[in-house]
Design a protein around this nucleic acid. Structure first.
Lengths: 211, 211, 211, 211
DNA sequence: TATGAATGAGCATTCATTCAT
DNA sequence: TATGAATGAATGCTCATTCAT
């Protein structure tokens, strides 16, 4: 009995957090970080203000949760790609596909959460690492930049890539990708077309690869 | 007399706006959009809170002014490059240099002003266009993206570039550049090294150019 | 059957109220009136928040109950002393002993409950008197002050005491006693020493000055 | 000019603080510490909520200010009496007069401010001592209890008083006095009568019992 | 009867904006 | 024109109370 009811409680808690998370994300996307008031989140999630505080200690906790939720799936996938045994070039292509297919809305959310100051994302990471519940998630231990950087480094060492500064190359790759995503969100396009993705990959590859 | 005093008045107004602008930018950079309170701006500009309202109708107007001021010089330079007669490839190199050498702090400000939501920058542009005083400035009529897009288009038509979707190519170029700049601001590096710029240009060119 | 189950019910109710009362007192003593939240009381009493409301209509009722419980035993003892047949002086000494030995924690609770405003204790008394369940308890009918006052009056009429205003003398006696108790609680001393009590009695009896 | 306007400003600030102080005291007396909301203070002081914050950083600061204001005058007078050269007995009589004539409402306020937990007054003192503006006021350096204690000690050493424990004697004296005051506030009497004061002094000096 | 999630009124505090001087 | 005190709407958060299970 205790078992079952505990499971049920956990499930309910999970659903509530999910509902709150989705409401908060919708608001972040439409009204920005400033527009993210607990009042609005509550209304969008169809509950009273006070109820939010049964699931998140305070607003900061909710933001951290969003950060973790948004970061985690990519970091999981990217981490898997990093550890796979294909060539650096293939890794990079896979990484770009993953990012493209899943990163659209999520990157936007991260940028909004940071209030435009990327430095803030670092703080989120650090604060996340300080919470036991999240201290071992990928977002904390293997951020996306690190993964790309290690693949680029691998490619350079394998003489498959030009001898770029790995950090620089990482920024170029990430920057180009996310810029395209931003544009699509900005223009309200549903998502990147296959054609766009192919072009992006060719662009990055032919700029990065030795002839 | 009336003429002279009007001129003097205009000059004083100009200087006050300049002081307020600089104070606001300093605050944006150090404390973010949330930290931009009229109180702080007034103090940093060495005047009283109420005085701000003699030069800017409200906070929104101040933000719009910052947007215009930050956007304008680039748009001026980029517009000139666009109208010059060198090859598309050379135009692109020049554009990247301009962006790199002057865009560092300014891009950061724009991202902060937008609260991370690029959509907001569009709104700034539209609201700016609605103000007679600013309706004909470059930021409104020839935003940076448009300029790059036209150069890319020119390159494609001249068969110097791959047949990319021009919007896509624009995003790739801008995204890669700004990503590198973000990193430098994030890491508190003074500015991009010549070597970095060269690498970036090579990356973009060898990815973009026909063999 | 009905009788028995009613008795059992009453016993259970009594035990629950007792548990709640003890939890509430512990919290009052450690965290003050502000710290007395229903949440905390429930947790300290080992039950759910909602359960409290099966035994007390609302928070005010719980506070009233605490007031009654804390006041009652003294009032019982004091009432007995008042009705005894010893001399006024002996009555006074007994009263002081009773107060001293049992009033320490309880007075502290009353002061906390009243939020420092003695006026509030009057309100408690009045509200208590309005509740049938409590209308005939000593706290209502024979408050501590009245008892001392009557003894002082008796002493004066018997020419054993100076011709003080009885109300004034009552206040002097009570004030001196409770002040000593406050100090001991404040300094975290376990309880008054015999020596202290003897000194207090001598002080009340003979004053501060040597003959 | 600067001088004059600074003086005027200081005067206005002073008056505002005074008005707020008085409003807050009235509320403390009528509705207790819980009833002391910034909203109510603002309304009672005839100003907007936000205005309070131009004069007091936060609610805690307002409470500290009240504590300082209420404590200071007594401590000043008592300190002077302590340093005077009359006999211990005369000092004590003077002290009681001072307390009686000025301490009525003020003691009540202190008790309310402390929420019934005298320990809190200690905290006020410590926090007050940490504020440069108040660090050297008597309330911090020479609290009322210390003054009485030193006089009692002096009396005992001069063999004018019984050999009481000085701390105990202090508590007895202070307790008796404040109890009488409490009663008067409680009963809404304007202030102690001369007769009452005389009786109190006699009581403290000679005790309750006839020789 | 027991539970504890949901509710929403109430509070401290911030800040854009106004306006008397 | 410059000033800065006054304003009050808005926000994060707490907690007594209710009620479906």
């Amino acid at each position: 009995m205790s078992r079952l009811s505990e499971k049920r409680k956990a499930a309910v808690e999970s659903m509530m957090k999910e509902a709150i998370y989705e409401a908060a994300v919708k608001i972040l996307l439409h009204q920005g970080l400033d527009g993210l008031t607990m009042e609005r989140v509550a209304e969008a999630a169809g509950m009273a203000k006070g109820t939010l505080y049964n699931y998140f200690q305070d607003k900061k906790s909710l933001q951290l949760y969003i950060f973790a939720r948004v970061s985690e799936p990519f970091n999981q996938q990217l981490s898997a790609i990093r550890r796979s045994t294909v060539s650096p070039k293939e890794k990079l292509v896979k990484i770009m596909e993953v990012i493209f297919l899943g990163f659209e809305k999520n990157r936007q959310i991260l940028v909004i959460l940071s209030g435009g100051r990327i430095h803030n994302l670092k703080e989120y990471s650090m604060q996340l690492a300080a919470i036991p519940e999240f201290s071992d998630c990928k977002a904390t231990k293997e951020p996306i930049g690190k993964v790309i950087e290690s693949v680029v480094l691998e490619g350079i060492q394998a003489k498959q890539f030009f001898a770029f500064d790995p950090k620089l190359a990482t920024d170029l790759v990430l920057g180009a990708i996310t810029s395209v995503i931003d544009r699509q969100i900005q223009d309200n396009l549903p998502r990147a077309t296959e054609e766009n993705i192919a072009q992006l990959i060719r662009f990055l590859m032919e700029g990065l690869m030795k002839a």
